[in-house]
């Protein structure tokens, strides 16, 4: 994880912890980096307000998010663009944000979670230092993007 980005590191850690039960045992981090924009791919996003305003998103790359949400919700979806699949992605993201908020609360920083949202194209956010974590399993890939909103 790039230096000085502890919040991002905690969120990424919680995301992998929450996602791993729903993905195959070959789940690994493919790469981590700073990027210019959030991925426009289908997915879910959520705003977390504390000392700064953070947006966190889960997005599809090649079947990884679909795999995770199908196992999480206990049903087979036609594709990640299906409304119910994206709803499941948003709920899974809510768990991740909640785990982050709990850890921050234990460290003395209160966080307020906005309702998660989802879509076939990520809402436009103006953020600085967007961190992208790409995950891969034996047969699929998905991503996590985390950024501090520029407001």
């Amino acid at each position: 994880m790039p230096g000085g980005m502890e919040d991002y590191s905690i969120i990424a850690d919680k995301a992998i912890m929450m996602l791993s039960p729903y993905m195959d045992e070959k789940l690994t981090i493919e790469n981590i980096g700073i990027v210019e924009d959030f991925s426009p791919n289908p997915g879910a996003w959520q705003i977390i307000e504390s000392d700064s305003t953070i947006v966190c998103s889960l997005y599809e790359e090649s079947g990884g998010l679909l795999e995770a949400v199908s196992n999480f919700a206990g049903e087979r979806f036609e594709g990640i663009s299906e409304r119910d699949a994206l709803d499941a992605a948003a709920e899974l993201l809510n768990y991740i944000s909640g785990a982050y908020a709990k850890e921050m609360s234990e460290r003395g920083t209160a966080c307020e979670l906005q309702p998660p949202d989802y879509g076939n194209k990520l809402k436009k956010f103006s953020a600085v230092k967007i961190c992208r974590v790409r995950l891969k399993t034996g047969k699929s890939k998905m991503g996590i993007s985390i950024g501090v909103l520029d407001i």
Partner: peptide
């Protein structure tokens, strides 16, 4: 019911 870490709420 809520996500974890929302003690104030």
């Amino acid at each position: 019911i809520t996500a974890a870490g929302q003690r104030e709420k």
